[in-house]
Simulated assay, not measured.
Amino acid sequence: MTEDPFLTHRSLLFTVAYEMLGSAADAEDVLQESWLRWAEADRAQVRDPRAYLVRIVTRQALNRLRTLSRSREEYVGEWLPEPLLTSPDVAEDVELAESVSIAMLTVLETLGPTERAVFVLREVFELPYGEIGEAVGKTAATVRQIARRAREHVAARRPRMRVSRSEQRAVVDRFLAALRTGQLAELLEIMAPDVVMVTDGGGVVPAAATPFHGAAVVAKVLARAHRLVDTLETTAVWLNGAPAGRVDFDGAPSAVSLTVEDGRITRIHVVRNPHKLTRLNETAELAR
C-alpha cells in the first residue's frame, strides 16, 4: 500500500510551518489544520501532491502568523523562537541548518507575514516564483519583488560569517564550562566586546525585559546567575541544527544558543519560558 503523501512529506511540511512561525506548537496546529483540508481534497485533481501540500501549509501558516502578531506584541519581555532538539545530521545540510537557527528565526521575526513566507519558500525550499505566488495569493512578478526586498532585509541583519560546526562546538564547550564554574575572566575572553544577550521568560519565569549589551555587563549577569542558584548543570546539545547548550538552574531548564563570529560570541539567546521547552527531550524531524 502506498504511503499517504501527507505522511511522506510530513517532515518537510513541519519545517515549512516552523520556519514561518518560529513555534513548534503552532507548526503542529497548522499541520493538523492542513491535514483536514488534505483529507477533503479531490486527490484525482492533484497533479503534484508535494506542491499542493506546501501550498496548504503555507496558507494555514500565514493565517496563524497574522493572528499571532497581536499576542507577540503583548508578550511579556523579549520573544524568542521555540528551540528544537535536532540530530547532528541536520547540520550536514548547511542551508537548512542556517535557516532554522535561532539567530535566523529571530531575524525572520522582523519580516511581515507575506515577506517571511516568500523568503522561506524561495531561499530555503527553492520553490518557483509562480508556485509561491499561488501559495500567498500574489503574481509571480510581485513575489519576485517581495523576495528581493526580503533577501536584502535578512542579509543586513544575519550573522556576517559562517563558522564550522567544530568551531561552534569548541566555543559552546568553553562557554558552558565558564558558566558552570562562574569564571568571569573566561566569560569575558570568549565574548565579543559588543555581545548582546536576549532572555525569554514569557512572564512565566524571571528574565530580563530588555537585552543586555556589552561583554562586561553580560559576563557579570552570567556570573551572578551562577552565584544565585544552588545547582547549575550544563549539557552540550544540538539545537536548531547547531551545537548549543542546555542549562538547568536548580533543575529548571533553559536553552542557550550562541552566535559565533571570528571565534567570539556575538549574541546569546536564552529561552527560559517553560512553555517553549517541552521538546528538549524529543528530537525534531526537519527536512527540505
Rank of each mutant, 00 (worst) to 15 (best):
F249E: 05
N281K: 12
E134S: 13
V120D: 00
P211A: 06
V172A: 03
A223Y: 03
E82T: 09
E134Q: 13
G241S: 04
A207C: 08
A252F: 11
D26A: 08
K220A: 14
L13P: 02
L96K: 01
N273W: 02
Q183K: 14
E261V: 11
V217F: 15
L277T: 03
F249Q: 05
A44H: 07
R279T: 05
R267S: 09
A97N: 01
A219G: 11
L105H: 01
T199V: 08
R288W: 01
A170T: 06
A287Y: 13
P253L: 09
A284Q: 01
V90H: 02
L286R: 00
E167Y: 10
R279L: 07
V16D: 00
A91F: 04
P113K: 03
D42W: 09
L286M: 05
V76H: 12
T210I: 13
G112Y: 10
D26P: 05
D200I: 02
D48E: 15
A252N: 13
L21Y: 02
S254V: 10
A25M: 08
L65R: 06
D194N: 15
A17D: 03
V217P: 08
K276N: 06
R169L: 11
P88D: 12
Y129C: 07
Y18Q: 00
K276F: 03
E261G: 06
V118C: 01
L121R: 01
F6M: 04
S166H: 13
A177H: 12
P83V: 04
A39L: 14
V16N: 00
E186L: 13
L108A: 07
R180I: 13
A44F: 15
A284C: 07
V94M: 05
A219F: 04
A242H: 06
G22Q: 06
T114I: 10
G203M: 07
A97R: 00
A236Y: 10
V195H: 01
R158T: 02
R47S: 15
R47I: 15
I132T: 01
E115L: 02
V256F: 04
Q60K: 14
R264Y: 09
A209D: 14
G251E: 07
V217K: 12
L108H: 00
L84D: 01
G245V: 06
L36S: 12
V54C: 03
A61M: 06
R37Y: 08
A24T: 03
P253H: 09
E126K: 14
S166F: 07
A225Q: 12
Y75T: 09
R10P: 04
R157M: 12
A225D: 09
E115A: 08
A192M: 05
P5W: 00
V124A: 00
V94A: 11
D93V: 04
E82N: 12
P243R: 03
P49T: 07
D200Q: 05
E285K: 15
A156E: 10
R59I: 03
V171E: 04
P128R: 08
E115H: 09
